[in-house]
Design a protein around this nucleic acid. Structure first.
Lengths: 252, 252
DNA sequence: CGACATGTTGAAGGGGATCAATGGTGGTGG
DNA sequence: CCACCACCATTGATCCCCTTCAACATGTCG
């Protein structure tokens, strides 16, 4: 399944460069990380709850989700990871998984062993900082999901999720992605928004003027309307801060 | 308001030691961090949304909360930080606040400037790792809140929150804290659980056999019943892994 | 004592869940 | 090429958990 590959972690480096200032040497270290390409099929655990992992998972294409569930077995998706995301960078520092990782559709990944990542962070504090920071952006997204589930109506929840995903798809670009791949079934959308698939179906109809959610992709017809409907404000994604304005970690 | 203080960050070090292996030298560096003591009064922003901070906030006593809100102005609490927590350690790496920080009751804090923390992380990779790891535990808590809001009934949400807080109060101790300070109003409890204060009031009555929630503290009368009601499983808090079983970051 | 926050209770309404079918659609194999 | 099947979307009818609105009670602190 997984085989050694001459790396292409360029998109991962691009992602880091969005929010951190890295020296040439540090950037090269990232690109030289060993990787193992693999496919993940939907509806089976790539990482199971409680499992110890020894690698992080970079998403090349497709979507990975973090899955939790209540005592009743009802599922709740806790995060969605799209192409360009390192889905479980946190596992470097917390190898025992606190939630399961599954693909939502067939997904191509690169597995990156923890060991060389840990060695890198010891050698280059600025990289440790960049990884830490990227994890904190994921945490900010998680906090917004809490607001979404706690204080927004069904339509707003869905609209917010779509706006968030659209923005993350095109991070770094100026213009919004008005069309993007989003291979989620309505049942999976329901698990991400804390709703029922039936209610998702009905709610999508009330949004039909502003978004078209198809089987494999989303078309945003009216960005402003959708953002208003979803109460969406992109600042929490922290993509608007110039890396050059960030502090670089102090050398010892 | 804030004045320089001969540090007592021992509880912070204790917290780190719960999950990370630190050398004597690293531990001393933590204890030697400069701090500024202060009080935070409830219902005013200690850190405002979008503000740039240059310090992290350690909770000595009381409770701090992260507050967000929807377009309608309805508030959603996104995290609660109790005594012993570094409430916004993430700000070291992400100084622009993505949510507001408020006290829920009068709270005593120690402010720790980012600068020396950043210098420390550059010098001691193991400390950077320990900080990063502690932030990831907060993220795991956040993920559980998503499950709570998305897939649990009102009674379960409240029960889960109380179990979580009880467990965090006594982290490191074997026995559960069956009684702990919890100075939240029912309205604040509602903001943490995505409910209405009216419904919190009614739901607390249905829990009256298992917990007694008073103005300033919580009494758990029947731990097992409460944990069952709240679908609570402490593993996500990651307090059950011996630090000695953890990898220490590789020296360069 | 008055003022104001907090807790408590009742009645009514609604947003979303639940239960139960039906309709599409794509993939597979005969 | 069609029959079949699995999965997904769609629709209707009914129910209920939680909200909303509106009082009233209690407590606490100047």
């Amino acid at each position: 399944m997984a085989h050694r590959n001459s790396s292409n972690l360029q998109p991962f480096l691009d992602r880091l460069n969005l929010r951190s200032r890295l020296l040439k040497e540090e950037q090269e270290a990232v690109l030289n990380l060993p990787v193992y390409a693999a496919q993940v099929r939907p509806n089976e655990d790539h990482v199971a709850l409680g499992e110890m992992t020894d690698h992080a998972t970079f998403v090349v294409s497709g979507v990975l989700g973090r899955f939790d569930q209540n005592a009743n077995g009802e599922r709740q998706i806790t995060a969605l990871h799209i192409a360009g995301d390192m889905a479980d960078l946190n596992s470097v520092v917390e190898p025992r998984a606190t939630s399961a990782l599954q693909a939502l559709s067939t997904t191509t990944i690169l597995q990156v062993p923890h060991r060389p990542i840990r060695e890198m962070t010891a050698r280059y504090p600025a990289l440790a900082e960049a990884f830490w920071r990227d994890c904190m952006v994921d945490a900010a997204v998680l906090a917004q999901w809490v607001v979404n589930l706690g204080r927004r109506s069904a339509a707003a929840r869905i609209a917010h999720l779509l706006c968030e995903t659209a923005t993350r798809c095109r991070q770094g670009d100026d213009k919004q992605a008005l069309r993007f791949d989003f291979p989620l079934t309505q049942a999976q959308l329901a698990d991400a928004t804390g709703l029922t698939s039936i209610h998702v179906n009905r709610t999508l109809k009330t949004l039909s003027g502003t978004v078209a959610v198809a089987q494999k992709s989303v078309d945003i017809l009216d960005w402003d309307a959708l953002a208003a409907r979803g109460d969406f404000n992109r600042t929490y994604l922290q993509a608007d801060i110039r890396p050059s304005e960030r502090l670089r970690i102090m050398a010892a």
